[in-house]
Each structure stands twice: as structure tokens, then as C-alpha cells.
């Protein structure tokens, strides 16, 4: 079987880092991106390419276009994202824009890069790492929640556009996961609200992403799949 290539944005830390490791272990070729690759600590691996990428910048995304099109990306994992939490009353327009520009506009920019190859192959997987904050809401995160709800809407519309080409588009929506991103916002009160009574780990998310990337998930598209220890039940 041919080796498939996964592009994972925000691959140096947190959930992204876990995804890079598990995809390499599972035999995929991986292009991992991060804002500063000199600071990323990856083991040498012939199946791994690490690239600098700032998804908030159109120019930065254009810089990796040739490489991405040359290699051909079968699986895109839009994982890179930021928070900039503040109560809405105190949030400046630039704090709003920064988060939307990275988390939502960044997904637009990077997804554009991989379209041609997937259309040509008539096979593709686009997996957007969203957040339960987008569906549930979270004080201090109007910008972040809006960006993630936006990603979920993007997921559904794109899934409808590309279904006839055997390209599936799904979101994975983590709850509170132990990463740098959450270290300042989680506390005992939050853990009490989680039925499974603990924070999640990046390795609680990665098996679902691996499944969505595989052929076995081929009848699932346009969904937002929640992995949150039961925190938010609809």
C-alpha cells in the first residue's frame, strides 16, 4: 500500500505534537509545521519533514505551497490555534482579530493548499481540531469560541462540497486537555463538572484523529466529534 502523507499544523506542542508522534508510529509520512522549528524538539525520522509556518500570515502559507504541492497531502490536520482570553468588556479589537485570523482564517489558508491534490486523487481527509468552547461557550473566550464555532461551520459546508469526491471533512472537539494552552484556565471547579473527573490528555484525542484519517472512517463526514470526558452533553 502507498504511504499516505499527513500535514499537521501546530505540530511542535500539545495535541499537535502527540498527533505527529502517533502518525509517524502508524507509518504515515508527516509534514509538521510550527512557528519556529529551531525550538521544536523532534527526533530524526526519515518520514518527518518539519517546516516553519505561521498560519496567521498569508505570505508564510504561500512559502510552503510548493513543498506541499510537490509532496501531495492526503490528510490535512488543521491543529494550530491560539487563545487570547479576556472578558469581552475588556477585549480589544486586535485581540479579537488575532484569534479569528489564526484559528479561522488560518484554516481557510492551509486548506486551500491541499485541495488540488485531494481532488485529483479523489481521496482526502481534512480533520479540523476545534474545541468544545465553540459549542458550549466559555467565559473569557468570545474570540476563541467564535473562531471554533466558525471552524465547525466551515467543516459542514466543505464536507457537502467535497463529498462527491470522496474527501471527508470532520472536526474533533476536545474539552479541557492538559497542554500549555489550558494551564492557566483549569482549576478544581472545572474538574468537578467533568463526569470522568479528570482533564484529558493529548493521547485521549489522537486515536480518534487517527481513525478519522483512515479508510475505516469513510462514511463519516461533516461531523464535530466531541472528546471531553462528558463535560458538555447536548
Amino acid at each position: 500500500m502507498e504511504t499516505k502523507t499527513a500535514l499537521i499544523t501546530g505540530g511542535s506542542r500539545g495535541i499537535g505534537r502527540e498527533l505527529v508522534d502517533i502518525f509517524l508510529e502508524s507509518g504515515y509520512r508527516v509534514i509538521a509545521t510550527c512557528r519556529d522549528k529551531t525550538k521544536s524538539k523532534f527526533m530524526e525520522n526519515k518520514n518527518l519533514t518539519v517546516e516553519n509556518l505561521d498560519i496567521s500570515s498569508k505570505d508564510s502559507v504561500e512559502e510552503i505551497q510548493n513543498l506541499v504541492e510537490e509532496i501531495g497531502v492526503d490528510i490535512l490536520i488543521n491543529n494550530a490555534g491560539i487563545t487570547n482570553d479576556k472578558l469581552f468588556l475588556r477585549m480589544s479589537e486586535s485581540e479579537w482579530n488575532d484569534v479569528i485570523n489564526t484559528n479561522l482564517n488560518g484554516v481557510f489558508r492551509v486548506t486551500k493548499l491541499v485541495m488540488k491534490h485531494m481532488l485529483k486523487k479523489k481521496w482526502g481527509r481534512i480533520i479540523n481540531i476545534s474545541s468544545i468552547s465553540g459549542a458550549m461557550g466559555n467565559p473569557g473566550q468570545t474570540n476563541y469560541s467564535a473562531s471554533k464555532a466558525g471552524v465547525d461551520g466551515f467543516t459542514r459546508s466543505l464536507a457537502k462540497e467535497l463529498g462527491s469526491r470522496n474527501i471527508t471533512v470532520n472536526s474533533v472537539s476536545p474539552g479541557f486537555i492538559e497542554t500549555n494552552m489550558t494551564e492557566n484556565i483549569v482549576n478544581e471547579e472545572i474538574i468537578k463538572k467533568i463526569p470522568l473527573q479528570r482533564l484529558g490528555k493529548p493521547s485521549d484525542i489522537s486515536p480518534l484523529v487517527l481513525f478519522l484519517a483512515s479508510d475505516e472512517s469513510n462514511y463519516i463526514t461533516g461531523q464535530t466529534l466531541v472528546v471531553d470526558g462528558g463535560l458538555f452533553m447536548k
Binding site: 488540488k116 481532488l119 462540497e161 467535497l162 462527491s164 469526491r165
Partner: peptide
């Protein structure tokens, strides 16, 4: 052709 076909044709 559907709308996506026309985009693919141009590509």
C-alpha cells in the same frame, strides 16, 4: 457537469 466539475476542468 456539476459546479465542482467546472472548477476541476479549469484546473
Amino acid at each position: 457537469a456539476d459546479s465542482l466539475d467546472t472548477v476541476e476542468l479549469v484546473m
